[in-house]
Amino acid sequence: MDSSRLRIISLLLLLLHFLFINLSIIESAPERKLFREYIGAEDKNVRFSDVPINPDVDFHFLLSFAIDYTNTASPSPTNGDFRVYWDSANLSPSQVSAIKAKHSNVKISMSLAGDTVNGKHNVYFNPTSVNTWVANAIHSITQIVDQYDLDGIDIDYEHFVSDPDTFAECIGKLLFYLKQNQIVLFTSIAPYDDDSVKPYYLALWRKYGHLIDYVNFQFYAYPKGTSVSQFLKYFDTQSSNYYRGKILVSFGTDGSGGLSPENGFFKACSSLSKEGKLHGIFIWSADDSKKANFKYERQSQDFLASQ
C-alpha cells in the first residue's frame, strides 16, 4: 500500500475518532428542564421583564389568551376568527422582541380560548363546520404569530358545544398545518380532570397526539389540600391517559386547588425527577404571582436547574 493511501486512511480514522467524541458529548449532555408561565389574562400590568428568568432552564411564556369570540350571542364563537385578548399594551410585539433578545432561553407561545372573556362570558368551542373553522383559524392565528413573532401555540378550550370528534378534527388539522408549514415550533394542550372536558382532549390525543409536544395538565384544578401521594397518583393517571406525552406538573398562584408549594409540591417533583418523569413545571399565572414578587417562579426554576 503506497504512502498517499495510508495518509488518507489515517485521516479518515482521525475524523471518525473526532466524530465519535462529539457524538458522545451530545448524547451525554443533560436535557434542560422546561418552565412555562401563563401571562396577560387578567390585565394587571405585568410585563415579561417583571418575571425572573433563570438562564439554566428553557423558559416559555404563554400569552393568555387569543379568543374566538363575539359578544352578539351566547354561546358566541366567531368560527375560528381569533383575536388578541391578552394585555397587549404591556405584552406587545416590541416587548416580545425585547425579552427574546435579552434572554436566549425564552420562547413565547399564545394560548387559545381559556375559560372566560373578562371573567364574564364563557368561551365556547362551537364551529359551524370543520373546514370553515380550520381555514379561519389558520388565517387568524398565522397573522398573530407573524405580528408577535411567536414560537408556539397552546390549546386551552374549557367549554364545548360541539362533540369530541369535531374538536379533535378541528384542532388536529390546525396543529398539523401550523407544524407542517413551520409556522410554530411546538404545541401544547391544557386539559384538566373534569368529565365535561376530558373526552375532548382524549379524542384529540388519540388521533393527533403525535403533533402535541407538551401536556400542560392543570393539576391545580384538583381539590385544595391535595397531598403528595394523591398528586403522584394523579400524575400516573394522566400519564396513562396521555400515554408517551410530556406531562408538565403545575400549581396556581391564584389561591386555586391542587398541591401547593407549601404543602409538598416540590417534594412530589423530587420523586418524579428521581424516576425520570419530571419534564417541567408551569404556573398559572404571572398576573397573580406579582403580589408575591414571583417567589414561586424563582423557586421552581432553581429547582428545575438543579435536577
Rank of each mutant, 00 (worst) to 15 (best):
G80Y: 01
I141R: 02
K102I: 03
H103C: 00
Q143T: 10
T72K: 15
D58Q: 12
S92R: 03
T70Y: 13
A98H: 09
I99L: 06
A98Q: 13
D68M: 08
S92G: 02
Y69G: 05
T70G: 14
V117T: 08
A73S: 15
D87F: 01
I99C: 06
S97A: 14
V57C: 06
K100H: 07
T72V: 13
K102V: 02
A113E: 11
D68H: 11
A89N: 14
D56K: 09
T70M: 09
N90A: 04
F59N: 05
G114N: 03
Q95A: 08
P77C: 11
V96W: 03
H60K: 08
F65M: 07
Y124E: 05
F59C: 08
F59D: 05
T72N: 14
V96F: 04
S74A: 14
F125D: 03
V145R: 09
L112I: 13
A89H: 11
I144C: 01
Q95R: 15
V134Y: 10
H139I: 00
T78G: 13
H60I: 10
N105C: 08
S92Q: 00
N105F: 06
T72Y: 13
V106W: 00
V134I: 09
A113K: 02
S97T: 11
T116R: 13
K102C: 01
V106T: 07
S97H: 12
R83A: 14
W133Y: 13
L62K: 03
N79G: 09
A135Y: 10
T116F: 12
T132G: 09
L63Q: 08
D115C: 05
T128V: 10
N118E: 12
N71C: 08
K120Q: 14
D68A: 07
V84T: 14
L112S: 06
K100G: 04
P127H: 00
A137M: 06
N105K: 03
I108M: 07
S64C: 11
P77R: 05
A137N: 06
V84F: 10
A113C: 10
I141H: 02
S74Q: 14
W86P: 06
T116Y: 14
H103Y: 13
D81P: 01
F125M: 04
L112W: 01
P77A: 13
S92D: 04
N126F: 10
F61E: 07
V123F: 05
I144M: 02
D87Q: 06
K107L: 10
S76W: 07
P75G: 09
S104F: 02
V130A: 02
A73C: 11
Q95C: 02
M110G: 05
V145F: 01
V130K: 05
D81E: 13
D87N: 12
S140E: 06
D58E: 15
T72R: 14
A101V: 00
